[in-house]
Design a protein around this nucleic acid. Structure first.
Lengths: 124, 124
DNA sequence: CAGCATCCACTTTGATACTG
DNA sequence: CAGTATCAAAGTGGATGCTG
């Protein structure tokens, strides 16, 4: 995902770019189940460096909310905002198109699921 | 857009990656009005090199059809296939999300339109 | 007209290590 | 725990020029 996302002016283009990133998709998928912590995403296989960037981007885009608790060890929760939830129809459209027109054998899906440690469907 | 698109197994990810490219979006938008030629896209501002790659990718993905006529000078038409038309809901979802949640001043839109020489909405 | 080959520079990423 | 710093490696994109 380009660093200059904020400079993309076309709404379609910008939204598409935002969503067309493995890391972002995994993040959104995980958050569908509720708030998650930084370490959770790391456990799921995301690179801390990229994860950090995406999280910052998503927060600054208003798609995610970041809540830090004054504890030790530190704890930070990430959750979907209304805007983040508004992204669901997009993901669903993407998924429906993908499932109907993008042939992917069961093995492939299994590989992907193993890779991300999660199911490939986005719950309602 | 990554060259190894065919290696992306997750349907969502793959469809998203396909669509998350300025060049691809412009191509799809232009084709909404009917078949277009290579030069048309060039006229619209697309780089021949990138355009060529995207066109090949879209054709091999089955999103576009390529028709070459035995003429001189050569003539080639590109058009949406059923699969290509099936992408419309995705673009629309993207657009709706973008328009509602991605603030873009009128100036920005104007800039974009000037840049692509076209309206930024996708006709039905 | 359609489109490939080349050059080149910039952007982005994974791995790894370190800190408040 | 939640990040950030560094570094080398690789992928991409634009400009240009050429050909069937």
């Amino acid at each position: 995902m380009p660093e200059e996302l904020s400079q993309i002016v076309c709404p379609i283009q910008r939204a598409a770019t935002l969503v067309a990133d493995v890391t972002v998709i995994v993040i959104l998928r995980e958050l569908q189940h509720g708030p998650r912590r930084f370490s959770h995403f790391v456990d799921v296989g995301l690179n801390p460096r990229t994860l950090s960037k995406r999280l910052q981007c998503l927060v600054s885009e208003g798609v995610l909310s970041r809540t830090a608790y004054a504890e030790s060890p530190p704890r930070v929760d990430y959750a979907l905002t209304d805007k983040g939830r508004a992204l669901t129809p997009v993901l669903r459209a993407l998924q429906e198109f993908g499932e109907e027109w993008m042939p992917a054998g069961p093995e492939d899906l299994a590989a992907f699921q193993a890779q991300t440690q999660k199911a490939s469907t986005i719950p309602t």
